[in-house]
Design a protein around this nucleic acid. Structure first.
Lengths: 254, 254
DNA sequence: CTTCTTTATGGTCACTCTGACTATAAAGGC
DNA sequence: GCCTTTATAGTCAGAGTGACCATAAAGAAG
């Protein structure tokens, strides 16, 4: 803002940048973290998989662009997309990250419950859920973005109520625990997890009515829905690494 | 990345964006949080104060641009600027945030020890430290950026070793505590603070040699320097709000 | 129908961490 | 010398946590 722009502020003089959004859309399916990817139909990286995303429209904020792209890729209605949690991760600005031209990309993360296969119109023709561990190598610097997104999501589960975004409207504590175990890649003690979740004010609220059977086996579990809290007090801390546990990367980023 | 760009990838067709960096540079001076601001010498917002920043050069990453601008505004040497911690906050993309043209801005936060008044060359002619509570209203959306930056810094002090970035190379635990108290706007119990800092591995390491007097009064304090850890285990949690405590805004953002 | 397995739920107990507090040491001001 | 100020050491009760054990309620197997 300090560098003087030229008289008349010709955008083309100081604006040789394209701006895109890239989306890391996650879900938990069959106890595995999955991410939504699209297959590129053109160069560069033709045939490689990439995070969904696209260019900002001239009078559109990055958040709006992210919601628009998400609706296009998933086929979800505007109401659904408008309500869900979109988190801006960070912005990637390496001059060589796109071989065509100078592109800076604002990355977002989104969390969805397990949905049927995405079959929206438009760009979503080649969209697919991938096991997050089996994804890659991706186009552009999307491997980096994906790793950063996983780190951030894992960290956010500790001190926010974000985990419920992976669950349907009504869920059992077992399903919620599965989210934590899948994202963190650890096993948690069930009674302790239960105690902490129920003692955190506003995290979940019980649903009255008869319990539901999850898969048929075992005692039916009580149903809960997401509470109105957004932060988690006290936080649900990840167990410290035991060295031999599998993980994507190191590095705290909350 | 999905939206097809036109043949030849003409940047001017899909790239009507200017990209800037804005810096929230903080220091703790006389028990108050201070932020580095520059006075605008031209429209829009002529005469208003703003966060330092500027346009990205054609082959420059946002991080490099932030370091370049920081060096220009503070007059610090490239070695100093290259070593210090620059944290990307988030990117601001509201279409109307700059009345001249479409500008997206990548915001960074930087933490400095208390330095003499900035008197660098170039743009820094009008740079000044401001009490962060007394700053504003600022140009553009910089009030928002400043608030977001303060929130993020406050949150990061909890689980990272970032606080030492506010201190000179050698510091006393009292000075470190002052950083926490100033950023959080609370008073902390001295023995408890001491116990936690010393029990966190790698946070600080003692300096051998004679103790230093801080201001002359009281018993001389032992000197420490920053340890090699980057994350703080266990975290140093902020005391819960007592309602009547002063604060900029709500909202967790770690 | 009985038994086994599976999942949900309730509870105990020792250990750690925390906040609040008291006490002592070492400097300067008067 | 005495007071004030700051640093440092230690105590103690309560909260939170991890590692358990126990019981309830379902389906599966015999």
């Amino acid at each position: 803002m300090t560098t003087p722009a030229p008289e008349g502020y010709d955008p083309h003089a100081y604006a040789p940048f394209a701006v895109t959004v890239d989306l890391a859309v996650f879900t938990v399916r069959e106890a595995r973290l999955h991410v939504l990817l699209v297959e590129r139909g053109q160069e560069p990286f033709r045939g490689r998989w990439a995070l969904p995303g696209g260019f900002l429209l001239p009078r559109e904020s990055a958040g709006d662009a992210a919601r628009r792209e998400l609706a296009e890729e998933t086929g979800l209605g505007p109401d659904t997309v408008g309500a869900l949690h979109l988190e801006q991760l960070r912005t990637y600005t390496d001059p060589d990250r796109d071989p065509r031209m100078r592109v800076v990309s604002v990355a977002y993360a989104a969390l969805l419950p397990d949905l049927p296969e995405p079959r929206g119109g438009g760009d979503a023709a080649s969209a697919r859920w991938w096991d997050a561990d089996a994804a890659g190598p991706l186009a552009f610097d999307h491997d980096t973005i994906l790793t950063d997104a996983r780190d951030r999501i894992g960290a956010k589960l500790e001190y926010s109520c974000l985990a419920t975004a992976f669950c349907p409207a009504e869920f059992t504590l077992g399903e919620l625990q599965q989210v934590y175990e899948t994202v963190w890649g650890v096993e948690l003690d069930r009674p302790n997890f239960r105690r902490k979740v129920l003692s955190a004010p506003g995290f979940v609220q019980p649903v009255d009515g008869p319990p539901r059977r999850t898969g048929g086996r075992g005692k039916p579990a009580a149903l809960y829905r997401a509470g109105d809290a957004t932060a988690l007090h006290p936080p649900l801390l990840r167990p410290p690494r035991t060295d031999a546990s599998p993980s994507a990367t190191e590095g705290h980023d909350r």
